[in-house]
Design a protein around this nucleic acid. Structure first.
Lengths: 249, 249
DNA sequence: TTTAATAATGCAAAATAATGCATTTTTAAC
DNA sequence: GTTAAAAATGCATTATTTTGCATTATTAAA
């Protein structure tokens, strides 16, 4: 019996019975359980079924909901952004980049804060559109699909004409030598423009981003006014950053 | 019985009866209560149910989630927009307004369609950002909070520079005499600009919008090329519209 | 507070899975 | 056809997961 035949048999069986059991299949096909397991793993990796302990079940295609953004390590992020809330003042003009940390931040902005926020991130704009006292301006342009942010000249142009009091920048990577770096060129350019337009630059990120680097430089450490992490500001891992003159919150 | 099966059983039971009781499940499935408890805890941590003393209950819809847009009469809207899908072609430049009917439309655009879409609606942009073959351009500007669309001069300016093959306009109200009308002045202006920039104008709406009016005129009936409703194109209620030269889909 | 029910924890046995390796089968090139 | 490489298979070993039980802790209600 060919492997392909076996796979077909397994898939048929799976549809008939809603599930298959490794031991049963081994018996029915007169093969070792190892082989069956290898088959099931193979079919699983092709997403034709879902391997579970003892056998496999049908794939449940969960309707991909674009609007359901799940934030990894949300608790940690809440801890970070809560510290940054103290930087907010009524009347500020604020620029916010994308990223899930900033999204958590947007969620937690007190509802009585009166401010103007510019952003080029769809999820952040969605979130802020619920805020009663924030004037929200979305910076349009070509969408970078997966990150759900706009990029390109249109964005740079708008940013270059703004004068903001403070900007909140998500970080992909940061280290003492290169400063803030990004994986994507276009995003790095946009973030540069954000920094140019802001009196004060704040970057929030979790400590696992510390001492990592990506290909495209956004800015040197000295251009950041404040960094906010999950660590205690006195933590040793932040010492070098403190020394270089950045305020650590 | 596989663990995965059991979990499925528990979830089904939970939906049927609104709750499950540990002891009952142990009896029904012929397993120790410990195992059931472990199952319930596992499902709880996946947020599929809520473990309580003695069993589990359904998860309570958590606080209004911005990202959870619920579409009223979605089935009806699916019916409408499905008809409109036939108007799409590879290579088109498309403008889409906001509105839940257009959002449903965005969801159903075939994933192999290659097109460029301009929109100024956050939810629609979120939806389209998942589409693999669409170049998406968001038209930025000041956000109108509740509707989650941008409005104002910035939007008009961008629209005035586009030349689109087709635009899809949601409708608040339509009648034979005034044509398309809107409740908000700013939105009416934006829609006017959309129409100006498009070779072909399509409006999709449910039949209860027929023969109603709002304060701000968008355009006359004659400026619409196609209207798409839930009704049969031959329906008597659409007769006057057909007579006025609009193509009814 | 008391009491019975329910839950958490640690542990051991059993089932299932992963891994490395030897053997066989298949494939492809000469 | 021969032959070498690649793939598939089964086995032994080791690792992981699941499960039930005993024990202890917690909870809810009288």
């Amino acid at each position: 019996m060919l492997k392909a035949e076996r796979h077909k048999y397994i898939m048929t069986k799976l549809i008939e019975e809603q599930k298959v059991v490794t031991t049963d299949l081994a018996l029915a096909l007169d093969l070792s359980e190892d082989t069956i397991r290898r088959d099931l793993n193979e079919l699983d990796s092709k997403k034709l079924l879902e391997k579970v302990y003892g056998g496999a079940i049908q794939v449940i295609e969960k309707a991909v909901d674009v609007f359901n953004i799940d934030i990894s390590a949300e608790d940690e992020k809440i801890k970070i952004v809560t510290k940054a809330l103290s930087l907010l003042r009524d009347g500020q003009v604020i620029i916010m980049s994308g990223g899930s940390t900033n999204l958590v931040f947007a969620k937690l902005i007190p509802s009585d804060l009166k401010a103007t926020i510019y952003t080029y991130s769809l999820p952040i704009a969605m979130q802020l559109s619920q805020h009663p006292n924030i004037d929200l301006i979305f910076i349009g342009g070509k969408m970078q699909k997966n990150a759900m942010v706009t990029i390109g000249m249109d964005v740079i142009q708008v940013l270059s004409k703004i004068k903001a009091d403070i900007c909140f920048i998500g970080a992909s990577s940061i280290n003492v030598k290169q400063g803030l770096t990004e994986i994507g060129y276009e995003v790095s350019i946009v973030k540069k423009a954000m920094i140019e337009s802001s009196d004060r630059v704040v970057s929030m990120f979790s400590s696992d981003k510390l001492n990592t680097k990506m290909p495209h430089v956004v800015c040197e450490l000295s251009q950041l006014d404040t960094i906010v992490t999950d660590l205690d500001p006195e933590d040793l891992r932040l010492e070098e950053y403190r020394k270089s003159g950045v305020f650590v919150l």
